[in-house]
């Protein structure tokens, strides 16, 4: 193993551990706002992992969309809710056996995928920018699903506006 690979491994494990620790915080913290901010760590470490896999577009999109957009919205919703910081979350569900079962199954699936598809690791060696590929794909082969998704999102947007406006009229 060359020095380069050792370094990459160190970075990978650091990112993975940050992600795991943050996820743990998200699941166990009793303070809603801290939970939301712990999510920041999860999203950032995943962005880092994308970066490590040289998926540059995914890296930027992850931060732009999830950190800059979705997480901000989540925190907004939390802050707008009255006294949510003082609510003591009991986290009773953590001891529930069904949850443990579901988590075990999911984990098994992940392990299975990780073991049966080793070629994913090879992405490491690829050195071509992804952005151009994704752009070309979106506007040629995957145009139809892309457009359908757009229409769906537009419908959601209009629906949200409709709901919000209705409340104002009352």
């Amino acid at each position: 193993m060359s020095l380069n690979e050792i370094l990459l491994n160190i970075i990978f494990y650091a990112l993975a551990l940050t992600g795991l620790f943050s996820s743990f915080m998200v699941a166990t913290s009793t303070n809603m706002v801290r939970t939301a901010f712990s999510l920041l760590g999860v999203l950032f470490s995943f962005a880092g992992l994308y970066g490590l896999l040289r998926a540059d577009f995914l890296f930027a999109a992850q931060i732009l969309v999830y950190v800059g957009g979705i997480l901000v919205l989540i925190i907004f919703a939390i802050m707008l809710t009255h006294k949510i910081a003082n609510v003591n979350l009991s986290n009773e569900s953590t001891s529930s056996s069904t949850v443990i079962a579901v988590v075990c199954i999911l984990f098994a699936v992940l392990v299975f995928i990780a073991l049966t598809l080793p070629e994913y690791i090879k992405i490491n060696q690829r050195n071509k920018p992804l952005t151009e590929m994704i752009g070309n794909n979106l506007l040629s082969d995957s145009l139809l699903p892309f457009e359908i998704l757009s229409v769906l999102l537009l419908a959601c947007l209009i629906g949200a506006v409709y709901l919000a406006r209705k409340e104002v009229k009352e």
């Binding site: 901010f37 930027a60 950190v67 997480l71 925190i75 802050m79």
Partner: peptide, 25 residues
């Protein structure tokens, strides 16, 4: 020199909001 330079800047620029929200809360 990033080949997603401008996207990168916009992405990290938007993460400033989180710090601001954190400070405010």
């Amino acid at each position: 020199r990033l080949n997603i330079g401008i996207l990168y800047i916009i992405a990290f620029g938007s993460s400033v909001i989180l710090g601001i929200l954190m400070a405010g809360w």
